[in-house]
Design a protein around this nucleic acid. Structure first.
Lengths: 248, 248
DNA sequence: AAGATATAATTTATATGATAAATAAATGAC
DNA sequence: GTCATTTATTTATCATATAAATTATATCTT
C-alpha cells in the first residue's frame, strides 16, 4: 500500500502467483476499468487470460473478496463491490478489539473528549431537518427503553453519537469516528456494571438530559453551545467510568 | 461484524463452508487460543479436524491472510499475525482512494481543521523528549530538502503531522488520523501544482515557519499556543488549496 | 565433538480433473 | 405473454498429483 516502506516488500508474498493476479485485478478496479457493480470475467476466463490454473485465480478472488473489493456470488460470478465503508470500519474494529490490552477505554474516552465537541459544533452548523428528526427519534427511543437494559441503552447512545457525526456532513469525520462508537457496546459493562437499580434510573435520566441539551443546541444551530454540551456529556461519561473503577 | 444489521446476513456468504471455517479460526484467535506469532495447525490437520478438503481450509486461510489475521509462509505454516495497525489503516486508505469523487480533499481539510488543533494541544501536554527530537529532525529535513521537490516536501510534511499525532500519546487518535496524513501525498498536486518557482520558495519558507511555531509551542508545553499555531497552519493550507482552484 | 553439507520429511503453492450447488438462460406448455 | 421445466453457466468443494520452500534429520569432514 502506501505508507509502509517499500524497501522490504514482504518476502514470500509479492512473488506468489495468486498474489500477482490479485494485484492485477486490484489495479484494474482502481483504474476504473471495472466499475462498482460490474461483473468481472469468470474464473475460467481469467485462467486463459493469465494462463494459470483455476486454483490461482480462485485464491486471488478469495483475497479480493476478504478485502471487500469484490463480491462473489455462487453460480453468478464475481462483481466489483459497491463502495462501502463497512470493510474499512470492520478492519479497524477488528484491530481495536485485538489490540485492546484493557486500557483502550481510556484512549477511547480521551479521543472522544478531543473530537466530539468539535463534531457537535459542526453538526449544529450543517445538520439537515431529516437529521434533526432522526436525532429526535433516537432521543425518544432512549427515553422509552427499559431502564437497566444496558444493551439497548448503549446501542441507542452509540447511535446518537453516530447520527451527530453524520450531521457534521463530513464523511471523512463520520468514517473515522465510527470505530469509536462501535466500541462503546464493548465497554458498556466496564462503565455501568456495578450500579444499583436506583442509580441506573437516575443515570439514565441524566443521559437523556445530556442528549436533550446537545440536540437542542444543534437544532438552534449554535455550535458553541453544542460543543459545550457535548463536552459536558463526555466528561460525565468519564466520571462514571472512573467511579466504576473504584468500585471493584 | 458488529455494526451491520444482522437481520440480513449476506446471503451466500455465511453458509459457505470455507467461510464457516474462517470464522471458526478467527474466533480461536480472538479468544486468544492462539496468540500472536504462534503457529496454527497445518492445512492437513485442519482438514482432519473439520473433516473437509484442503481446498476449503486453504480458502479460509487465504481470507484470514488477506484480512491480516494470519501470515502464511510457504513450507513453514500459518502463523497468527503480530498485532499491527497496518492492515486496518490500509483498508481505510483503500476505501478513501476508491470513494474519492474528487471532492474528498475538502472533507480532509475540514477534518484536519477540526481535529489537528486539539491533537497539537495534547502533544504539547504529553510529548516526550525523544518525540521532540524526532520532530526537530523532521523540521531540519524539511529545511534542507530541495525546493520544488513536491514528493519529498509532502512526505516530510505528512510525517511531521504523524509525529505530532503520536506525541499526543493516544494510540487511538494516531491510528484514526493516519489515513488523513497518508492521503496528503495524493493531494499534493491539487495544492501545489501551478505555482511558480519563486512562489514555491516563499511557500516553503512559510511552511517551515509554521512547523517551527508549532514545534516551539509543543516543546514549551503550551497546549493553547500549539493548538492556535496548528489552526493557523491548516487554515493557510486551505487558503493555498482554494487559490490553486482559481488558477485552473 | 562440532560444524558444514547433503538428504529426507514436512508444508504450502499450483495444476488438473471431477462433482455438487447455485444461478442464469433457454425452452416449452398453456 | 407467463409460468414451469430443462439446460447451460458459474462458483464451491473434493480428490490427487506435482512443484517450491522450509525444516528436520542424517551424513560427512575435520
Amino acid at each position: 500500500m502506501s505508507h509502509q516502506g517499500d524497501a522490504f516488500h514482504k518476502i514470500g508474498s509479492e512473488n506468489l502467483l495468486s498474489r500477482r493476479i490479485e494485484r492485477s485485478i486490484e489495479l484494474s478496479i482502481k483504474n476504473k476499468q471495472y466499475v462498482a457493480g460490474q461483473k468481472l470475467p469468470t474464473e475460467g476466463e481469467f485462467c486463459k487470460l493469465f494462463s494459470v490454473s483455476r486454483t490461482a485465480v480462485r485464491e486471488a478472488f478469495r483475497s479480493l473478496s476478504a478485502r471487500g473489493l469484490v463480491v462473489i456470488r455462487q453460480g453468478s460470478g464475481a462483481f466489483v463491490n459497491e463502495i462501502s465503508s463497512d470493510w474499512a470500519i470492520d478492519s479497524i474494529n477488528l484491530y481495536l478489539e485485538l489490540s485492546d490490552d484493557g486500557n483502550m477505554i481510556f484512549d477511547i474516552i480521551r479521543a472522544r473528549q478531543l473530537f466530539e465537541p468539535e463534531i457537535a459544533g459542526q453538526a449544529a452548523l450543517h445538520r439537515t431537518e431529516a437529521e434533526l428528526e432522526e436525532l429526535e427519534k433516537n432521543l425518544s427511543a432512549l427515553r422509552h427503553c427499559t431502564t437497566g437494559d444496558l444493551d439497548a441503552e448503549t446501542e441507542i447512545d452509540s447511535q446518537f453519537h453516530i447520527l451527530i457525526s453524520r450531521a457534521s456532513r463530513n464523511p471523512v469525520v463520520s468514517l473515522l469516528m465510527r470505530p469509536i462508537f462501535d466500541s462503546m457496546p464493548r465497554f458498556k459493562q466496564a462503565i455501568f456494571a456495578k450500579n444499583q437499580v436506583g442509580d441506573m434510573a437516575a443515570e439514565k435520566d441524566r443521559l437523556v438530559q445530556f442528549h436533550q441539551d446537545i440536540l437542542d443546541a444543534i437544532r438552534k444551530g449554535d455550535p458553541g453551545e453544542a460543543s459545550y454540551n457535548m463536552r459536558a456529556h463526555i466528561r460525565r461519561s468519564e466520571k462514571n467510568f472512573l467511579e466504576s473503577l473504584k468500585q471493584r
